[in-house]
Design a protein around this nucleic acid. Structure first.
Lengths: 229, 229
DNA sequence: GCAAAAGTGTTTCGGATACACCCATGC
DNA sequence: GCATGGGTGTATCCGAAACACTTTTGC
């Protein structure tokens, strides 16, 4: 089977930069390429867009297929289309970035035996194609957006102590934050619900666990509230 | 001549939302479609991406061809790819937004006799395809970005009075600003160069004309300065 | 009892806001 | 002389920043 057009058409792919956070650092999910070009190199999960599916749908499908991830926060990042970015043919890639709660989602390699693994953003391997550029743009976007939209919670487990939220912000923004000011500000927003639970199995005083209150956020937003940290 | 692929490929276009500002309001440049579908409707300037050109290059080329505009501020906005957005075939459009100094650039219709015209954003005609959605996203982007990057100057003539800058901000942000506070803040940034010229031919006291000092901005930015209004 | 992290208030400072009048010019 | 927009300064307020000690728990 083949497809013929009067004019040349590029191929269109979607690629996703999936971020995760564990106590110590920010990580990106990469897959090892099974085919040429760049066989064996690490790359962003992604693949070709089907003719009948939406771009975001394509990104979610590829993520599910290649990494087993679903139901995650996903947002379009930028479209990369330098003529020679793929040596095979002209390929335009619509890049997305995603945020996942690391604890909730064990990743599994796709059936076709490609490896899937998390890498700290501070220490990424060489990446295929222009994927390093894509990751850098995703990092910049995350860094910018986490300050004025409450997307950081997408990277934390449902229930979390304030110190973990602070560590996340410090990691992403790459700057230390004052503990008392941080707590005052975030608690003052009224977006955190006290679960009345505390940490288990910690070797020191256990912290209270909070939950992001999505309903309260939506209600506040309707009244003109703007998240900002 | 024709092109054949093993898998289906979508067509890829670029479309541009070009903003201009004249004393009274914010405008968007539209072209009247010469061909089907939507013949005669107003639409964003744009067209198919050539196989050997960059996406941004394609956007600039289409703008030059269809409207005569060149050398303008241009930035990628978002990629639209709903399967049915174009009735002919699957078309994925990489949208850009652009800012031009209205005075400096007289637009001219392309050779193939399509009409080109400026429309106030507050009063746009019905647009072809999903172009209304694209314009709305561009407006949102402009509104957000003008506050923390000095892109507003791209919409003004090289030399402008402070009142015109303020009117621009009030128009884009859709909110009135206090004259004294506005002047204090913008002048305090050290980004405006006094040209020592004044307005000509005005029926009242003539205002001083300023120029955006690009060099000063770059220097400040290196030292960690962030524009914000 | 000590290590490790949780939790908590007050003072200070700077930028944002609010606000009203005189000035220059053309007609 | 009047209409039109240009240009200017100060007081108040509020949120941001700076800052150190006590509490709880497991070992």
């Amino acid at each position: 089977m083949s497809f013929t057009y009067q004019y040349a058409h590029p191929a269109v792919t979607v690629d996703a930069v999936v971020f995760g956070f564990d106590e110590s650092d920010l990580k990106v999910l990469l897959v090892q390429r099974a085919g040429e070009p760049h066989r064996g190199s690490w790359a962003l999960p992604g693949g070709f867009v089907e003719m009948t599916e939406d771009l975001e749908t394509a990104a979610r499908r590829e993520l599910a297929e290649e990494t087993g991830l679903s139901r995650l926060f996903l947002e379009q990042l930028y479209t990369f289309g330098a003529p020679e970015r793929d040596p095979r043919e002209r390929v335009i890639s619509v890049a997305y970035y995603a945020l996942v709660k690391l604890m909730d989602h064990a990743v599994r390699a796709a059936s076709d035996a490609k490896e899937v693994a998390w890498f700290p953003v501070a220490d990424l391997p060489d990446l295929a194609f222009d994927h390093e550029e894509i990751v850098n743009m995703a990092l910049k976007r995350l860094k910018g957006k986490i300050r004025y939209e409450p997307i950081g919670f997408e990277l934390l487990p449902e229930k979390f102590p304030l110190s973990e939220l602070q560590r996340l912000y410090e990691t992403v923004l790459e700057q230390p934050l004052d503990k008392r000011n941080f707590r005052k500000k975030i608690q003052g927003m009224g977006l955190l619900q006290d679960t009345h639970e505390i940490q288990q199995d910690v070797a020191h005083r256990a912290a209270r666990l909070y939950r992001f209150d999505q309903a309260a956020y939506q209600a506040l937003r309707k009244r003109g509230f703007n998240f900002e940290l």
